[in-house]
């Protein structure tokens, strides 16, 4: 790759950093209107919904069943256990066994 690669990389680094840093630094110490902070408090749970679905179904391209099994296992483990590591490693474990068998 030539010098253009490094310029592209610098550009990518800047446009990735701006959305991360601007709100955290500019909003520091600012009191937002209750309506806005109410909406912002909802964001984490809405984001999780959107991050999970439907992407979780497509973790293995062209194998919907795999994603479906993963979804069911992850939700089942999450209902049974609250420990994050148990949920993550447990789901990986079940899917590893599944893909070894089928």
């Amino acid at each position: 790759m030539g010098a253009w690669y490094w310029w592209t990389l610098i550009g990518m680094a800047i446009v990735t950093y701006i959305p991360r840093a601007v709100p955290l630094t500019f909003l520091e110490g600012k009191e937002l209107p209750p309506v806005v902070s109410g909406v912002l408090r909802n964001i984490p749970y809405a984001v999780l919904g959107a991050l999970i679905f439907p992407a979780i179904l497509y973790v293995q391209e062209g194998n919907l069943l795999f994603g479906l099994i993963g979804t069911i296992v992850a939700f089942t483990l999450a209902i049974l256990f609250s420990n994050l590591m148990v949920i993550v490693l447990g789901t990986i474990g079940v899917l590893a066994i599944y893909s070894l068998l089928f």
């Binding site: 991050l51 999450a78 990986i92």
Partner: peptide
Amino acid sequence: QFLQAAMSIALYAMFVGLLVP
């Protein structure tokens, strides 16, 4: 291959684990 496939679920399982409780 089997491990690569199984581990592709990890981040989603984590999201589920953060959401459900």
